[in-house]
């Protein structure tokens, strides 16, 4: 589904991703963990080219993301993204946030668009908030709307960039629950997270990154119980 070959990313002289290669299968749920500054968010952002790559190759569903010939706008409709800061559009209602992309990209008619968007809103448990503005919602609710918005274009891949890090602790659970439901539906998910419980319970595979490299990857059991690398052990020792 997704292949990453020798991905490198530099910001000026700062080498954030040194040499990343991995393959993500269809319907796989992959959690990326690691200390801050390890490059995990940058890695995620390179997958839909929110960050241009310095060198290396990324393909999603057979399409080469990193090729200059690729229509990146087209590709992004197939790759949903959820941000740490939610980034809902504050001038639009909840429903309008979800309907925006299908309306202007797919040219979906209003009735179908509204029906589909209400289904998504129901899925994240916020049907009654359809006409609210983002500022009227709690952080957890905003993030659930952001997930619904990212799903509106029917993406086959969802990227989550620390989706619960900006939330008050009591709201983390509701967002993780929505993500868990999504994982069970069989959508390909890549989740950069500090929620080790979520990684252990939901992930098919966990990737540990540090210093711009993938240090270790494996099933949650392999990574959490039979940790091979010292650096992974040191990190897990601090966070678990």
């Amino acid at each position: 589904m997704i292949t990453v070959e020798n991905l490198k990313k530099q910001f000026g002289a700062n080498e954030v991703l040194k040499d990343i290669s991995t393959t993500i299968l269809e319907k796989e749920v992959v959690c990326v963990i690691g200390p801050s500054g390890s490059g995990k968010s940058t890695f995620l952002r390179c997958l839909n080219l929110l960050e241009g790559v310095t060198s290396g190759k990324v393909t999603i569903g057979g399409i080469e993301v990193t090729s200059p010939k690729t229509d990146i706008d087209q590709l992004r409709t197939n790759v949903g993204m959820v941000f740490q800061q939610f980034n809902l559009f504050p001038h639009l209602t909840v429903l309008e946030n979800i309907m925006l992309a299908p309306k202007h990209i797919k040219k979906l008619n209003k009735a179908d668009n509204e029906k589909k968007s209400m289904e998504l809103l129901g899925k994240v448990g916020l049907s009654q908030k359809r006409d609210a503005y983002p500022e009227q919602l709690s952080g957890g609710q905003q993030q659930r709307v952001a997930i619904a918005r990212a799903l509106a274009m029917n993406p086959s891949v969802m990227l989550f960039d620390e989706p619960t890090s900006a939330l008050d602790p009591e709201m983390v659970g509701e967002v993780l629950q929505v993500m868990k439901d999504l994982a069970h539906e069989g959508i390909t998910m890549i989740v950069v997270t500090h929620e080790m419980g979520f990684a252990r319970e939901v992930a098919d595979r966990v990737i540990f990154m540090d210093g711009g490299y993938i240090v270790e990857e494996g099933t949650p059991e392999e990574l959490f119980q039979n940790t091979r690398h010292e650096r992974t052990k040191a990190f897990l020792g601090k966070v678990l």
Binding site: N48, L50, D73, Q74, L75, R76, T77, V79, G80, M81, F83, Q85, N87, L88, F89, L100, A101, H104, I105, A146, R149, A150, A152, M153
Partner: peptide, 22 residues
Amino acid sequence: SNGQHEAARSLGLTRFQTMRLV
């Protein structure tokens, strides 16, 4: 904020649509 641009572009909106709609 840059986050607004990124959210719009990640949905597949073009630069022009992002400017006009968001």
